[in-house]
Structure formats: structure tokens, C-alpha cells
Design a binder for these strands. Structure first.
Length: 465
RNA sequence: GCGCUCAUCGUCUAGCCUGGUCUAGGACAUCGGCCUUUCACGCCGACGACAGGGGUUCGAAUCCCCUUGGGCGUACCA
């Protein structure tokens, strides 16, 4: 499917990729893929002070983890200063921009005075028409039209318009000669042929200030789609104090990328009553028409539920690789233990995160060297000797260590002892895992395997004294 | 302050454009029950919202206005 659509994600590398940025990137990606358009990645690093290579790497890594591939880029604005310089010159030449010699201190004073007198904190235009060119530092300002209105039809929010008198003359080039965001974003979106700008809600105000620049530069104005903000539980803009906001922090906490993608897309977008979406579903079903207009609250509980869902339905082989990595990071050697995919299968229904799964898998690889005190007092008391011995007997004679085979052996233990499973299982569980919580005993025995099971049972027997 | 913008269960949302089918549907969370060898899973059920006020209309969650509340912006940050 061919399309003229060209969208872009333009993060500024001043930190990791956060929840909000990831969703914006996702929306861009989905629309591009759905319509067969082009997805461009551009790094907005015009703020030399705060931009870092580490941030760029972190963002790239996070996008990769989420599965958001781009078709062009990454382009770095810091490498395009020549272009911006020529565009500033063009604006100056056409009379759409001018040098401003006001110092930051003066501007600050003017702002305060304006607010003081009940006015608007806008640039007063002191240098707009000055003829002289003093030999002092200056910035370049864009000459914003002073009458009329600037309007556009947002693909998500609908018609938006602002009186030009509300706008002021934006600085497009700093004293140090570097261009500013509101200017380079216009030049780049235009020069890169972006047809639709999908970005955060916090940019709607910038949009009306940017449109006159497109026009002054003779560029075609692209379409815009502003996605609502993501807020914290207190309805304030999402920030660190609301908990983890870094996408990669969730990977560390044992989340699956598909859970994150699924959660993010549903925060602001919907498709009837559906909740579960694979990336392919989304590429097929996503549309700007179904994106809501109001801000949404980030809900960690729902993300966790989604993660639980994907762990439950995930491929054991794949999860095994992930869990092995986590265990390795904790110094647990899984090489000699039971088959990891088999281990995973016993844990899929009882783990909400991969980290939880790793915790639950721990006992498979390291026999308990102590038993939970309360559990031992109850299930490994001396009166359990007969039960354990009988279990060892039947398990020793058992050849088929499958779930069903193990069940058969326990049936035999129950028959011979006349005890119900409730009098046998808990004791075996404590002997095998050290505590009272674990997957089904049959599964544990089957996965642990004959040697390990017998060894642990003998050890428990010895501990009875 | 000013400008832009938003407003359905605690949260994410369906419905709103093309008023009646809405005693407002789904999901997460919460609470209760069932299942059960532990912990979970699963299943069943409960609780729970059209911000308020005016209109328009036979009829409004749906259309209009006002109020209130929220978000964003108001930088030589992006």
C-alpha cells in the first residue's frame, strides 16, 4: 500500500524515553505502518546544554525494545545548522525577521512590568522597527503578523484558532547563533516533507506560532494531530514523583514490550470494547479518529494486568530466555537445572512480571537449605516420616516423570497410606521448595525430575531428626 | 492574570458527529462467592459515572449557552 503520508517522532535527547514520548512515537509508527507511509526519526538536540549522547542511545534502545522501527533517520538537528542559518538569512532578507538587542535582563523586567500592569507577558516589539545596528549581542526574532487570526484543523482536536495579537515575536536564533526549537522544527518538518505532525498536546500553542513561519518561508503547512497529555493519579502532568516513567524501567521490572505497547495505545485510543491488541492488530485497526481529546491518567494496575496477560499467553521458549537472563543477573546458574521452558510453563499462571517469575523459578535451581519455620513445624514434623518414606518409595519406583505419571505415583501413596492428598502434598511441597507456595506438586515433581526430587526428599527426611 | 483546550463509574473508555434502541456497555482496581493439594489462574456476582445550571425538543449523555473544575502554554527548553 503506497501513501503520501510522512510522519515523524522528534524527541529531544535530554533524558530517557518516557511513557508519554513512547506513546507519541507509537501513534506515529502505527499510522505510518497502517497507511504505508514513512516514519522519520529526528533528534532535536538544539539545546546543547542539556542534550547528551547517552539520552540518544537510551531513546533508540527503548524504541527498539518496543518494536518501533523507523524508515528514515535518525537525523540530528545539531548537524543541520547550515540549513537553519540560511533560512534565518532568508527570513531576514524578506523582512520577516529582525535583530533584537534587548538583554535577557531587560526582557525579564518588561515581562514583570507587563504582568504587574495586568498586561500580557509578551515581547513589546522594541527592536522590531529599529534602524540602527549597535555593536552588541543580539538575537533574531521572527516578525509575527500583528493582526488577523491563525487557525488550523487538528486531526484529533478539531478546529483551533488564535488571534495573532496573542502571539509575540519568537526568538529564532540565540545570541550564540544557535537556532531555537520553534524555528528548526518548522524548517525540518517542511524540509523533510512531513505531511502530518503527530505530537503531544503541549504543542498546540506552538503550532499557531509556527504556522506563520511556514508561510513566511514559503512552505506548505502540514496537518497536525495533537495527542492528549498523560497525567499522574493526582491529575498532574506525569513525572518521576508518580513512579517509574521511563519505558526501560518497566523492562527492568519484568514487563513485556507488548504489554507496554498495548497499554500505551489504549490510553487515549479505543476500538469498541476490545482491550487486547497485538502490534499487527494495531497496524490494522489504529486510526486518529478514535483517539480521544482529553488527557488520561496513567494507570500502573492496568499495565500490570496486561503484562500478566501476555506472560500467561506468551511462548514458553521466549519467556525462558528472558527469565534465564534475570536469574543469571541474580547469580543463579540455570545450566544444570530443569528445562527452563518447562519451568516457565508451571509459572505462567502465577506471575505478573518476569521478575516475579524468576523469583518463583528460583527453587528449581537451588535446593532449599533451610525450611520456612512455620511450614516445617507443621508439615515436616516427626510424624511425617512415614509419609515421606512412602513417597520416596513410590517415586523411586516411578519411571514416567510426567505430570500424569507423578499423579499416578501419588495416588498409590494415598492408597497405601489411606491418607488424603491434603496430608501428603504440603509436606512434599515444603521438602521440595522450602515453603508453602509453589506450582502444583505434580508439576513441580515432574519438572524437577527424579534425582533432584529424591535428593530433596531424603534431605527433608534427615532433617526430621 | 491572559490565551488555547478538555469534561461519562476511583482509572482507561464505548455511546455523542447522524437526539429516542441508555433503567448508560466493556476493561482495570475493589468487594463477595465458586473451584482448589498451597499460592495463583479461572469462573460467577456486587459496588460504581453522564460535573452543575439554564435552554432547544414530544424526547438530551448526545445540540446550544453559562458556571465550575482539570490540563497545556505564556523561556535566548523542547
Amino acid at each position: 500500500m503506497m501513501s503520501e503520508l510522512r510522519v515523524r517522532f522528534a524527541p529531544s535527547p535530554t533524558g530517557y524515553l518516557h511513557i508519554g514520548g513512547a506513546r507519541t512515537a507509537l501513534f506515529n509508527y502505527l499510522l505510518a505502518r497502517k497507511e504505508g507511509g514513512v516514519f522519520v526519526l529526528r533528534i532535536e538536540d538544539t539545546d546543547v546544554e542539556r542534550s547528551t549522547q547517552e539520552s540518544v542511545d537510551a531513546i533508540l534502545q527503548a524504541m527498539d525494545w518496543l518494536g518501533l522501527s523507523y524508515d528514515e533517520g535518525p537525523f540530528y538537528q545539531s548537524e543541520r545548522y547550515g540549513l537553519y542559518k540560511s533560512k534565518v538569512a532568508e527570513l531576514l532578507e524578506k523582512g520577516h525577521a529582525y535583530r533584537c538587542y534587548c538583554t535577557p535582563e531587560e526582557l525579564d523586567a518588561k515581562r514583570k512590568a507587563a504582568i504587574q500592569s495586568g498586561g500580557k507577558p509578551r515581547y513589546d516589539g522594541t527592536c522590531r522597527n529599529r534602524a540602527d545596528q549597535p555593536d552588541t549581542p543580539f538575537v533574531i526574532r521572527f516578525k509575527t503578523p500583528c493582526d488577523g487570526t491563525t487557525a488550523f484543523v487538528d486531526r484529533i482536536k478539531g478546529a483551533i484558532s488564535v488571534e495573532n495579537t496573542e502571539l509575540d515575536d519568537l526568538i529564532i536564533q540565540r545570541t550564540d547563533g544557535n537556532p531555537t526549537y520553534n524555528f528548526v522544527v518548522v524548517v525540518d518538518d517542511a524540509e523533510m516533507g512531513i505531511t502530518l505532525v503527530i505530537r503531544g498536546d503541549d504543542h498546540v500553542n506552538n503550532t499557531v506560532r509556527q504556522i506563520p513561519m511556514y508561510q513566511a518561508l514559503g512552505y506548505e503547512v502540514p496537518e497536525f494531530a495533537h495527542v492528549p497529555m498523560i497525567l499522574g493519579a493526582d491529575k498532574k502532568r506525569l513525572s518521576k514523583r508518580h513512579g517509574a516513567t521511563s519505558v526501560m524501567a518497566y523492562r527492568e521490572m519484568g514487563y513485556l514490550p507488548e504489554a507496554m505497547v498495548n497499554y500505551l495505545v489504549r490510553l487515549g485510543w479505543s476500538c469498541g470494547d476490545e482491550e487486547i491488541f497485538s502490534m499487527n492488530d494495531l497496524i490494522e485497526k489504529f486510526s486518529l479518529e478514535n483517539v480521544g481529546r482529553s488527557a488520561g491518567v496513567f494507570n500502573p494496575d492496568k499495565l500490570l494486568w496486561l503484562n500478566e496477560h501476555y506472560i500467561k499467553t506468551g511462548d514458553p521458549e521466549r519467556l525462558a530466555v528472558l527469565v534465564t537472563e534475570i536469574l543469571a543477573g541474580q547469580g543463579v546458574d540455570t545450566a544444570l537445572g530443569p528445562d527452563m521452558p518447562a519451568v516457565v510453563k508451571t509459572l505462567q499462571d502465577r506471575a505478573k512480571t518476569l521478575v516475579e517469575m524468576a523469583e518463583g523459578a528460583h527453587f528449581y535451581f537451588e535446593a532449599p537449605d533451610t525450611y520456612d519455620e512455620q511450614a516445617a513445624a507443621k508439615f515436616l514434623a516427626s510424624d511425617k516420616r512415614d509419609v515421606i518414606e512412602l513417597t520416596i518409595k513410590h517415586l523411586t519406583g516411578l519411571a514416567d516423570y510426567s505430570h500424569d505419571g507423578v499423579e499416578t505415583a501419588f495416588k498409590a501413596v494415598m492408597e497405601e497410606s489411606g491418607l488424603k492428598f491434603g496430608k501428603i502434598g504440603p509436606t512434599v511441597r515444603v521438602a521440595l521448595v522450602g515453603g508453602t507456595v509453589s506450582p502444583s506438586i505434580y508439576d513441580v515433581v515432574a519438572v524437577l525430575g527424579k534425582d533432584a526430587v529424591l535428593t530433596r526428599l531424603q534431605k527433608a527426611l534427615a532433617s526430621l531428626g
